[in-house]
Design a protein around this nucleic acid. Structure first.
Length: 234
DNA sequence: ATGTGATCATGG
DNA sequence: CCATGATCACAT
């Protein structure tokens, strides 16, 4: 009985295992962000325009993810990455999902198996949440979280996109890559602003300065993941 | 400047 | 209308 009525609490430690992580995550389902924030002593912003990562960080707090911006999985000991995903009333994603920074140098000989993208997406805890802009952040509720590992076809799709994009980067064609490339995975700017620069390979094999990029999952791809999870829950 | 957490805002 | 390109906050 108490197991089912347990309210979410801010844990003092990272989850000991996958089951504990799932239990913590499921306890968040149905909870409004404003209530969770209040229990944690956080102030809920009126808008996310200046607090874009706020909901993701609040959920990290409740799941016991190690804070910080280290380039590793959220739960390294469990090999699990946490992703919150804003959805509409039908459960369709409202935004693409950031995966990781795209390395633009040192890519020669790197395989899909060794890539940051694949390593981040090995196992993901998806936490859907109401992302409707007409609902104020405090009233947005968390959906039912679920664990996902790429199926063979999903892995193949991601791999094909990653290999095509990586090949272009290696060939010095990064300036021609747009977010339209790729079926599941896309490359887009990931920077403080459009003036930020990082080193990359130029058309002549030289070094150029270009906008830092990140890998993102397209909404069509994540929509299928969410729909499949919904079906499996029935 | 690089990386994390992402959403915003407008052109196509 | 909505995805692409741009941007915001903060830690390291």
């Amino acid at each position: 009985m108490s197991d089912y009525l347990q309210l979410p609490q801010v844990p003092s430690h990272p989850p000991a295992d996958e089951q504990q992580l799932l239990t913590r995550a499921r306890a968040l389902a149905g909870m409004p962000l404003g209530w969770l924030a209040e229990q944690a002593g956080w102030v809920t912003p009126d808008t996310l325009s200046r607090a874009k990562g706020w909901s993701g960080q609040l959920i990290e707090l409740y799941l016991g993810a190690s804070a910080g911006s280290r380039p590793e999985q959220d739960f390294p000991e469990l090999g699990i990455e946490l992703k919150t995903i804003p959805v509409n009333s039908s459960g369709t994603p409202l935004e693409t999902t950031y995966v990781c920074i795209a390395p633009l140098l040192g890519l020669n000989g790197v395989s899909w198996q060794q890539s940051n993208v694949r390593n981040k997406l090995q196992k993901v805890l998806w936490v859907p949440l109401d992302g409707r802009r007409e609902v104020k952040p405090a009233d947005r509720c968390i959906g039912m979280p679920f664990l996902w590992q790429p199926a063979a076809d999903e892995d193949a799709l991601l791999r094909a996109d990653w290999e095509e994009i990586t090949e272009r980067i290696i060939l010095g064609q990064i300036q021609q890559i747009t977010a339209r490339h790729g079926q599941a995975l896309q490359l887009r700017p990931k920077a403080a602003n459009s003036k930020a620069l990082t080193a990359a390979i130029g058309p002549e094999g030289d070094t150029i300065q270009t906008l830092p990029r990140g890998y993102y999952l397209k909404t069509d791809f994540t929509a299928r993941i969410l729909q499949r999870a919904l079906q499996n829950s029935w």
